[in-house]
Amino acid sequence: MIRRWLPYPILSALLLAVWLLLQQSVAPGTILLGALLGVALAKVFGLLRPPKARLRHYPLLGRLFLRVVLDIFRSNLAVARLILRRDSRTRSGFVAIPLTLTDHHGLAVLACIITSTPGTIWVSYDPDANILLIHVLDLVDEAGWIDSIKRRYERPLLEIFQ
């Protein structure tokens, strides 16, 4: 019964939270309307038949989030320095990374992480060979990049999604 009415409890809760934030109130009427919207929109989302995501290791998710925020902060400064220094010797290039992660949701999160971090951008992913191509603005050490992406992001994502 509860599965039928609440197929995506986390999505419904998030929608309710967004609604309360936008309305800036916790009046009973607002909560009721938000809850109705959350349940109804989650049911509509179910009609799209999305592939089911299974999340594990919630604490690891929080740690990964903090690490990404820190990395974004640091690479902001690095890229800003690179732009201001105006060094024409800056070598940038493509790096091919062989992945072990195959879960669609994990890959989507990895894409968001890599692209939102200044200095690296997701270019393409080959699902047959499971090779990810990224572009790095300040490419000094190719093996180092492969290692750090695999160690810092792929390993926690593997534990969370697979």
Binding site: V79, S88, T117
Partner: peptide, 18 residues
């Protein structure tokens, strides 16, 4: 300032993050 397209595409992420 950056030279080619693939380098330039990195720059706007500064505005969208920090």
């Amino acid at each position: 300032r950056l030279e080619n397209f693939y380098q330039r595409v990195h720059a706007p992420t500064l505005g969208t993050t920090l």
